[in-house]
Design a protein around this nucleic acid. Sequence first.
DNA 1: CCTATGACCTGAACGC
DNA 2: TGCGTTCAGGTCATAG
Length: 270
Amino acid sequence: MPELPEVETIRRSLESYIVGKTIEDVQVPQPRLRRPVPVAELKRWALGQRIVRLDRRGKYLLWHLQNNAVVAIHLGMSGRLGYYTEVTACEKHTHVIVTFAEGGVLHFRDPRRFGSFDVFEPGRACLQQMGVEPLSADYSRDYFSAKCGDSKRAIKTLLMDQKIVVGVGNIYATEALFLAGIHPLRPGLSLQPDEVQRLCAAVVTILNRAVARGGTTLNDFRDARGEPGFFQMDLAVYDQAGKACPNCGTAIRKIVFNGRSAYVCETCQQ
DNA sequence: CCTATGACCTGAACGC
DNA sequence: TGCGTTCAGGTCATAG
């Protein structure tokens, strides 16, 4: 489900509930996820530890513990974190339950099991293969050009490649390409310098807007408190097949490649 | 190395 | 009502 803005929204809402708290218990009623939840390691490194900081890296949520271990959570397509002040009955597809000494419990649910819930022991580097953060100073036209300027891959595929830039998924790649006026199927090497510039700027604009609005409410996105996002109004093209392009009125077309849907205004995006 | 494809899962929405 | 089909915000392994 979530891309960078959704994970960031969850991070912000969860932060106030669990930073400074001590992990008293970890239960794993269903360890099967993308990778099995490492139950023994998780208990070994997390039990009794205080959470000192919540961070986000791409689509991962990171819990930095007092002993320098890191809990890394990916929500896949359908992952949810639910915070409750009282002990609460375990819903279907609940994989991990974390209980805090100061009160409060957190449930991780993921029906499709594309998510993950891992722990990295103190000092062990994690998530080394990931690209730059699009909302950081590392992300520039020059960086993107260097990574994509020689590639024949479709620009939308490049935008979604987490080894290049993290956090951008199908919705925001689609929206950024529309805002930049660039066709999703264009090979990376075909983009002119001004187009790369426009695209990088569009990614930043779209992500900042989405973060400011608390993520996208397409189907069932909720933050850790169960509040819906507020972004539903201006998805210009994503999931808008047949509707009028907000710029020119041309019908938005759905195209499928790399096993994913993309939406495009064939007039505005060349 | 690069690229494309299917596998991994469940559930919601839709057509008949 | 129910059954079958299609599709979904993401990675990952493997084949060419």
